[in-house]
Simulated scan of single mutants.
Amino acid sequence: MEGGGGAAAAPDPGPEPGPGLEPEPEQAPEPALGAGLTLGPAAGAPLGYLHVLWQREEPTGKIPARRLRRAARLHRWLGPTGKETHALKRLREAANSNDLDTVQQLLEDGTDPCAADDKGRTALHFASCNGNDHIVQLLLDHGADPNQRDGLGNTPLHLAACTNHVPVITTLLRGGARVDALDRAGRTPLHLAKSKLNILQEGISHSLEAVRLEVKQIIQMLREYLDRLGRHEQKEQLDDLCSRLQMTSTKEQVDEVTDLLASFTSLSLQMQKMEKR
């Protein structure tokens, strides 16, 4: 027997999704780039913060690299989706194969430049080892960490040094790489400059422009290194050598600047040894 109007008062339940506010499992969206960042009221505080961070209007100015790295660390803490994992792998592969266009597109899509593979290597490690200065700068501009270490303890600066990529070392130093982390064996840009200058002084056949470019790159690296150390007097000496290099027009004149730079480097190394005693 029916109760006092209970059944008549009950509305048609219709196709309810299930108990509470939670949808049925089959209604959950497929994982996608940025999945989990557009959750509704049930979202937790970190996810809500990320939603605001990634969905808000892009600022007109350049976002500081430190802020980008901070946001990326929070994102990594939450864990990547399947598509994000694929994008992270593509970024490292593109950096390793010197594919500048793909690196730029992935970074513009929000791919984390600090994400590492199972050996701790990031896209910046690969680009630094390959000596691709353009990709290195692009990664730094999008928040890559120049002091991040791989599984063996190598920073991007280590890899650029051991492969003798002078312009990349300069770019990494400008991007905030620690000068005391160049080489775990204690070598500095001065050691690298000396070895590069020795090769040039051996007289191996190089065109005038090639030698001038090499010397210019070495001077730029040392200027950045000494500037980071606060050695302004030595930096002024390098400025003078750079001016002399620009006025050279013969191989002999370039060789003269090379010899002066070699003497400067040797003297700086001696001073460095004395300071450590």
Rank of each mutant, 00 (worst) to 15 (best):
Y225V: 02
L238K: 02
M1W: 05
A94E: 02
L139W: 05
A32Q: 08
E236F: 05
L269M: 15
P59T: 07
D145F: 07
D227K: 02
H125A: 08
L100P: 00
A160H: 06
E209V: 08
L208C: 00
R70S: 10
A35D: 13
R149E: 15
E275D: 12
L190C: 05
I169Y: 01
R56E: 11
H232D: 09
L261Q: 06
C114T: 09
V103Q: 02
L226V: 01
T265N: 08
L138C: 15
R231Q: 12
V215H: 01
N147W: 08
H86S: 09
E58V: 10
T102S: 13
Q104W: 03
R228Y: 01
Q201G: 03
G34K: 04
L140A: 04
L245N: 05
D12W: 07
P189G: 02
A123K: 02
H232A: 11
V179R: 06
L190I: 02
N132H: 07
P19F: 15
Q201T: 02
G203D: 05
R228A: 10
R56N: 07
K216F: 03
T38E: 14
Q104K: 14
E236M: 12
D145K: 03
L33D: 05
M271E: 13
P29S: 11
R76S: 15
P113V: 03
A262N: 08
G36W: 03
N130C: 13
P13E: 06
Q148F: 13
T85F: 07
G3T: 08
C162F: 14
D240L: 13
P29L: 15
V215N: 00
A185T: 07
V166C: 09
T85Q: 14
K273R: 13
K251N: 04
L74F: 10
G34W: 09
P19V: 12
D145R: 06
G82A: 13
I219Y: 01
K216P: 00
A123P: 01
D109P: 00
P64H: 09
R212L: 07
T38P: 00
N130Q: 14
G61Q: 09
I169D: 01
L241M: 15
R149W: 01
G40W: 04
T60I: 13
L208N: 00
K251A: 14
S97D: 11
R70D: 08
Q220P: 00
S207G: 15
A87S: 10
I219H: 01
A10E: 10
R277A: 13
L269K: 06
P167N: 03
D180M: 05
R56W: 05
G4H: 13
G18H: 03
N130P: 00
Q246E: 15
R174H: 13
Q272A: 10
P17A: 13
P80I: 07
L50C: 08
P25L: 14
L37M: 08
L267W: 08
P46F: 10
S195Q: 12
G6C: 10
V211G: 00
A193P: 00
K62T: 12
Q272W: 10
E256M: 09
P13G: 06
G5K: 08
R244L: 15
R69T: 06
A87K: 06
C162V: 15
A144I: 03
H134P: 00
L138Y: 05
D109F: 10
